[in-house]
Amino acid sequence: MMRFLNNRLTFALVLTALVSGPVQADSRIGAAPLANVQLADPDQEKAAKHLMETIRCLVCQGQSIADSDAELAGDMRSLIRERIQKGEKPEAIRSWLIERYGDWVVYAPPARGSALALWLLPLLLLGVGGLVARGRIRRRSR
């Protein structure tokens, strides 16, 4: 399932002996049908890929299912491709997953509740910063 964590590279500025992750074996079953196979329709594949990039892998250390070697991530990719193939909308699949795993499973915070502030953050910071900076600018006298 999950590979040891320590085959990952590190940006770490301080490196010591690496911690290994939970020991999880792989199953003896190959990847799910559509885990590593693209959909024939390029538009559908694009929609699926776009969705997969926003879904967080459940058993990894912070990766999307689009770039994880974990088997469960592969199974989730297969699930998404199958459903897209059947004509389901990406938004519906996303909601279906959120229904099961909560907002944790998507990499975009929900645009409601307290996380809404997060989406307004750039504007908020620009506004505050702009106000502070304005004090430094001399009014042009005519």
Binding site: M1, E71, L72, D75, M76, R100
Partner: peptide, 14 residues
């Protein structure tokens, strides 16, 4: 459940 589909529909992650 060979491709974990039911597991996922339960919201189980391992």
């Amino acid at each position: 459940d060979v491709s974990s589909q039911v597991q996922i529909s339960f919201g189980s992650s391992g």
